[in-house]
Write a protein that binds this DNA or RNA. Structure first.
Length: 218
DNA sequence: AACTCGGGGCA
DNA sequence: TGCCCAGAGTT
């Protein structure tokens, strides 16, 4: 298991590799952030951005999403996977925002997770990025990278990965940590063919060393 | 823990 | 063509 100093080195290195790693879902508007992250489930961020560019011009408020038919909203997000379910969830979510939250987006993880279509990851992203609440969003990239490097254990659940990161990463870096690890995971430490031979973190990477050794034997 | 939803991107 | 993708909900 990596210690705090080693983890800091990892995060600094990731920043050097992807200095532009800002996170494309970094909307200043909490409501738009909820919608964007909800839509992003199981599809690429580039696709979501393409759709939300037009979507957010047409729909500004929860009322706007409820003012059209379900079919019309589905058409507007048709190019995104799971669009039927997501359109239904957006309508449910907007209705709850109006009924229970005066049209505003709630700030805490617990409240966010009660919204339709908002699970652990979306709730964490919105709470941490939009409201700077204490949370680290662990998606598949963050989980994979954490486990390969040895920041956490292989068998850890998503909750355990989350807890470990919150303990070992300074509070003020939680939000940025999310984006750095996602870029690192998406473009370098990929699920299928991680670029271990050219990885600057190979020396301290548990999984990387294992893979290099295995490749050498073949 | 395992399954389903699902169109687009990429090899 | 076949496989995967910045997940959530249900069983």
């Amino acid at each position: 298991m990596l210690n705090k100093k080693q983890i800091r080195y990892c995060l600094d290195t990731m920043k050097k590799m992807f200095p532009e790693a800002k996170g494309e879902l970094n909307h200043s508007n909490p409501f738009e952030l909820v919608i964007a992250v909800l839509l992003s489930a199981q599809c690429t961020d580039a696709l979501v951005n393409r759709v939300t560019e037009d979507l957010f011009k047409k729909y500004k408020t929860p009322e706007d999403y409820l003012s059209v038919s379900l079919e019309e909203l589905q058409q507007d997000i048709r190019s995104i996977g799971l669009y039927r379910t997501k359109a239904k969830n957006i309508r449910k979510l907007c209705q709850v925002l109006l009924d229970d939250y005066n049209g505003e987006v709630p700030r805490t993880k617990a409240e966010l997770m009660k919204l339709a279509g908002v699970g652990r990851k979306t709730a964490n992203v919105v709470a941490s990025i939009a409201f700077n609440e204490p949370a680290i969003a662990v998606d598949t990239h963050v989980e994979r990278v954490s486990k390969r490097l040895g920041i956490c254990r292989w068998k850890d659940s998503v909750t355990e990965v989350e807890e470990t990161l919150m303990i070992k990463v300074p509070r003020e870096e939680w939000s940025e940590t999310h984006h750095r690890m996602i870029f690192f995971g998406r473009y370098h430490c990929k699920a299928r063919n991680p670029n271990c031979p050219e990885c600057p973190l190979l020396d301290l990477c548990r999984e990387g060393k294992k893979r290099m050794k295995r490749a050498e034997e073949n």
